Simulated assay, not measured.
Amino acid sequence: MNLIKYTSIAAIFVSTSLIIAKILTYHFSHSIAILSSLVDSSLDLLTSLINCVAIFYAAKPKDEDHKFGHSAIEDIASFIQAMIIFISGILIIYQASMNIVNHKVITFEKVSMYTMLLSLFMTICLVLLQKYTISKTKSLVISADCLHYKTDVLMNIGIIASLFILKFTHFYAIDSIVAICIAVYIIYSAFELGKSAFNNLMGREISRQEQDEIIAIIQAENRIKGFHDFKTRRSGQMSFIQIHIEMKGDLTLFTAHEICEEIEQKITEKIPNCEIIIHKDPC
Rank of each mutant, 00 (worst) to 15 (best):
I80R: 06
D229I: 09
L126N: 03
N222L: 15
E192T: 06
F164N: 09
N51E: 08
I90G: 06
R223V: 11
N51A: 10
T7L: 00
S41R: 08
I92C: 08
V14K: 01
K225M: 13
Q130C: 11
L193S: 04
A179D: 04
F230Y: 10
F121W: 11
D44W: 02
A96T: 00
L140N: 01
L35H: 01
I218G: 12
D175V: 05
S189Y: 08
I267T: 12
C283F: 15
I80Y: 01
S112W: 03
F191H: 06
T255K: 14
D75N: 13
T47P: 04
F164Y: 14
A82D: 00
L43V: 08
I32F: 08
T16I: 10
I134G: 02
Y188G: 09
F164K: 12
D44Q: 04
H103Q: 15
G158C: 10
D175N: 02
S239W: 00
D75P: 00
S31N: 00
S239M: 07
Q95C: 09
M202T: 13
M247A: 06
I165Q: 06
S48L: 09
A161I: 13
I4H: 02
F13E: 13
C274G: 04
Y26R: 07
I93H: 04
R223M: 14
Q209Y: 13
D229G: 03
M247P: 03
I19T: 08
K138C: 02
E74W: 10
I23H: 05
S239D: 07
F230Q: 03
S239C: 11
N156I: 08
L253R: 14
D75E: 08
L251Y: 07
H30T: 12
F230L: 01
Y188K: 14
A161K: 10
F198R: 01
A220P: 01
F164P: 04
E258N: 14
E192Q: 07
K138M: 01
K195Q: 12
A220V: 06
E210W: 07
A161P: 05
I85A: 04
T151D: 09
H244D: 10
M155G: 05
R223H: 14
K110M: 14
A216T: 13
Y185G: 02
N199L: 07
P61H: 03
M98I: 14
I263E: 00
N200G: 05
S189W: 07
P282G: 12
K67Q: 14
L49I: 15
K138T: 04
A96Q: 01
A216I: 11
D65E: 15
S135N: 13
L129D: 13
F108M: 01
D65N: 15
Y114A: 02
K5Q: 11
V184E: 06
T25K: 00
S42V: 03
I180G: 02
F79Q: 06
P272I: 09
L193Y: 02
H66C: 02
S176Q: 10
S97H: 12
A161L: 15
S78L: 00
Q237T: 10
L35T: 00
